[in-house]
Design a binder for these strands. Sequence first.
DNA 1: ATTAGCACTCCGCCGCCTAGAGTGCTAAAA
DNA 2: TTTTAGCACTCTAGGCGGCGGAGTGCTAAT
Lengths: 350, 350
Amino acid sequence: MALALSERQRTVLITIVQHYILTGDPVGSRTVARKCGLNLSPATIRNVMADLEEMGLITQPHASAGRVPTDLAYRYYVDSLTSIPQLQTNDLEALTQSVPSEVERIESLLEHTSLLLSQLSQHAGLVFTPRLSTIVLKQVTFTRLKSTQVLAVLVSEAGTTHTKAVKLDEDLSQDTLTEMGNFLTSELEGLSLSEIRSKVLEQMAEEKAEYDALFQRAMALYDQAFGQEVDESTGEVIVEGASNILNSPELQRDIEKMRAIFEAFEDKSRLVRLLDRCLSSEDICVFIGEESEIKGLDDLSVVSQSYRVGDRPMGAVGIMGPKRMEYARVMALVDYTANTLSRLLAGEPV
Amino acid sequence: MALALSERQRTVLITIVQHYILTGDPVGSRTVARKCGLNLSPATIRNVMADLEEMGLITQPHASAGRVPTDLAYRYYVDSLTSIPQLQTNDLEALTQSVPSEVERIESLLEHTSLLLSQLSQHAGLVFTPRLSTIVLKQVTFTRLKSTQVLAVLVSEAGTTHTKAVKLDEDLSQDTLTEMGNFLTSELEGLSLSEIRSKVLEQMAEEKAEYDALFQRAMALYDQAFGQEVDESTGEVIVEGASNILNSPELQRDIEKMRAIFEAFEDKSRLVRLLDRCLSSEDICVFIGEESEIKGLDDLSVVSQSYRVGDRPMGAVGIMGPKRMEYARVMALVDYTANTLSRLLAGEPV
DNA sequence: ATTAGCACTCCGCCGCCTAGAGTGCTAAAA
DNA sequence: TTTTAGCACTCTAGGCGGCGGAGTGCTAAT
């Protein structure tokens, strides 16, 4: 599967990709000859380029323009970046400066992270929040809002909260509700919501008398609030700096594409699917063009890396920009940010 | 201050505005003569138009194109819509169909509302959430996350939650924290956060011995969590359907303007200022072009109306689109939606 | 295997022109 | 006095042709 390129082909291809990323203009044989360091004449380069074109790595937008990398070429280029690149010193400075000393609100932290990524990269910043099922329960409380309406509040170990209003048949007092919350908390603390889900289902099916009625009802209440939600919730996506996409000159021409992109940004459910593919991998993920499999995003690339709390992957951060992005730098930014976020959430010093 | 226009001038102006809203093309004397119903020749209309231009109500994009309404003309047009217009039947149907039967999560409801507004209007939907100070407290709880880290959770009467992690000097047990929460809840329930703010400040200043030490510490903890926040928090803005702005043909030409608009969308803090101006008024608000006083939004108009819980205004909903929008229809949508939202939040049937 | 030379192609730009739409002005009509 | 018809004028959008530049592929020489 891996493309077998001669050393010379490799050099020429990389030169083309790098130069195109830099300038955005199609790059011709003359330019390659000067920049690639091979001391060959443009004519020779042309032969190599003809081969590369046949392999589907480069194309010309029209006969007699220079060559432009295809998705395949970007893929090759990214794969050829052996390991996660080092962060540039100025980026490192900027990042360390804007890391908060402590976490007051996780939601704000994630938003801030997304914004930071977008500002540093000048592309769009992405943060995926955890899906409900992976969350570990810390505390449940029920608050009586109106006669038969109760607000269930769930606090996770990480410090996120999740709420849902529930309608009851009977009117329970706040005291009863508090007791139910305490019951559940002592019983369920430390379990993930998906573990709880199976435990609740199991116990409600058995309906043994070994638990008293209050506990049974508490379980039912919990299930009413979060039961389905756990299976269905896919987490959220925080997109910041989407307007940066408008800077990219190769997209400014085509307003239709632009619209497709912004519509894709708003359809969060599709974006979430990227998360799944990223969470299953330890490594940083790069989706080039159509690899994201999101309609409308075929002119963009996404670089993302999961962040974790303890050993479990919780969510992911990423940067989304034109395929013509500085992959090395962006990957370094994303990787560093994901690691920092993991440490912050774990309460470790940064 | 109100512009004094002759009946004829009025008719011509309204015709121009309506026709421009409809087509987006500059409208010439010939067209006006045909559409305005006055049975006058284009030449006569031209004289009227010259007057209107002198008054600053219309301009020509270039000599020898038709006339285009200025902000002033839109203002006049909107003011001439005597009362809030009626909802069109098809809009009414669409709205009633997508009203949820019950409110499970306020955050989702508000997001859904914003999305709904954007879809029906084909512009951007706005929802402003309440600023912290106006919220009425229902319950406070403290959850011990780690040795000296506590999560303060505040539930409002409306059912919204607000959290903040707090770092402590000492390590308090969960039992102590729970007790503190109960204390505070019983003492503060039913008060708005701004009322609480002054009460807390007052009591902490007095430092009387009439309250026991636990309560004093609870107060301090509360203040640490939400004290400053109450003064600073401005509420949030939920923008949906921003990509609809890209449809507007008069903006597609100028990518710079487009970028300015999307940047303005992302700068939530400025958008929030619109809320203030809208909350103080009972009536529906229309901001045309520069009236929003937001840089970058001078090519858009915003229609917004506050929603309330009980008698207090809580937040606002709105629609943001090109100045060339169907004001009557948009105003009807916004007004109806705001009322429906108020009723939903109050738990009334819709 | 590499290179120089050359003819060819295609885009982007400039200037030119024209058709069309709309205006303002003036003089005639109501 | 108000309205209208007529006319000359202006400005834009769009089509056409020519030209320079950049880059290519091919061929023949090194």
